[in-house]
Simulated scan of single mutants.
Amino acid sequence: MHRWDRIEAFTEVVRLGTFSAAARHLKVSNSHVSRLVGQLENQLDTQLLYRTTRQIRLTDAGALYYEHCRHLLDGFREAEAAINDLQTKPKGVLKLTSATTFGERYIAPLVNDFQCLHPQLEVLMHFTNRQVELIDEGYDIAIRMGVLRDSTLIARRLCGRREYVVGSRAYFEQVPRPHSVAELANHRCLIGSRDNWLFEINGQRREVRIHGHWQANSGPAILDAALKGLGVAQLPDYYVEPYLQTGELISVLDAFQHPDTAVWAVYPRHRHLSPKVRQFVDFLVAHIGETLPSKR
């Protein structure tokens, strides 16, 4: 550390032309700068400067040493600037995962908009309905829905999300509409990745196990089956609201609908959150409403 102090004092004396100017720049006394330069000369066992009362002049050795030190200090300052820049601008690779349909429809366009603003950023998006282990699999951010079970992650709410139990008009012409959750046992239920459906019963959040003879880990496949009268399904608002408006689907058990299951951006807890994660999550929060049909 002492050597760097001495080198910095020497280069500033040469660059600014006097010991007093270097001292003002470094915010130390003239005598301290003079002492540092003298220590450097003793360390190198050579004279670097000719000193007079009016000016300083480099020796041959001093001129050679100054050129090398100047480049070293310039590189050091550039390295510091690069770190500062990295801390303020999103750079590197942003690795994100999301549920497939929601991610493809509503998250990917926002990721693309964000990269247009920050072209230096690299993006890796992975869409899957499997709950990814963020830390183990090296992801920066995950878009998740409903109840968050991993308390080690930080979560930012992006938007609301409602789950509808729906069936086609043709289906309900054959089977009476259910008026209680228990009556789902009398219906053909279209099951997704999980066989629990979410309800609010007597003011309490309840996950109810349902049964059926049709199952798929694809929201669009479930939606298609419901539209074709194969049974009732529980699907998020962004799947079914257009069909509720046209009357192709009918919503039932609305009295037991959970009011808000929410969409979240979650990310690992770090002491210093990287600019790419912080700024991207802020961007999602600010603009997610522009992509959702019900928010436009």
Results as ranks from 00 to 15, higher is better:
residue 3 R to N: 04
residue 8 E to M: 08
residue 13 V to I: 06
residue 16 L to W: 04
residue 16 L to M: 09
residue 18 T to H: 06
residue 21 A to W: 00
residue 22 A to I: 07
residue 24 R to Y: 05
residue 26 L to K: 05
residue 51 R to H: 07
residue 57 R to Q: 14
residue 62 G to Q: 06
residue 66 Y to M: 08
residue 66 Y to H: 15
residue 67 E to K: 11
residue 67 E to I: 00
residue 68 H to E: 10
residue 73 L to S: 02
residue 74 D to Y: 08
residue 75 G to D: 15
residue 77 R to D: 11
residue 78 E to H: 13
residue 80 E to F: 06
residue 84 N to V: 00
residue 85 D to W: 12
residue 91 K to H: 08
residue 95 K to R: 15
residue 104 E to Y: 05
residue 105 R to K: 13
residue 106 Y to P: 02
residue 112 N to T: 09
residue 116 C to V: 07
residue 124 L to V: 11
residue 125 M to N: 12
residue 126 H to Y: 12
residue 126 H to A: 11
residue 128 T to H: 04
residue 131 Q to C: 00
residue 134 L to F: 04
residue 140 D to E: 02
residue 142 A to H: 05
residue 146 G to N: 09
residue 153 L to C: 02
residue 154 I to Y: 05
residue 154 I to N: 11
residue 156 R to H: 11
residue 162 R to Q: 14
residue 163 E to R: 05
residue 165 V to D: 02
residue 167 G to F: 02
residue 169 R to N: 08
residue 171 Y to V: 01
residue 175 V to D: 04
residue 179 H to W: 04
residue 180 S to Q: 05
residue 184 L to K: 04
residue 196 N to Y: 13
residue 200 E to K: 15
residue 210 I to K: 01
residue 212 G to I: 03
residue 216 A to D: 11
residue 217 N to A: 15
residue 218 S to E: 05
residue 225 A to E: 04
residue 229 G to L: 03
residue 235 L to Y: 02
residue 236 P to T: 09
residue 239 Y to C: 06
residue 242 P to N: 08
residue 250 I to R: 10
residue 253 L to H: 07
residue 259 P to M: 08
residue 262 A to D: 12
residue 263 V to G: 06
residue 266 V to S: 02
residue 278 R to K: 15
residue 282 D to F: 00
residue 286 A to N: 07
residue 287 H to T: 07
residue 289 G to D: 13
residue 293 P to I: 10
residue 294 S to K: 11
residue 296 R to Q: 14
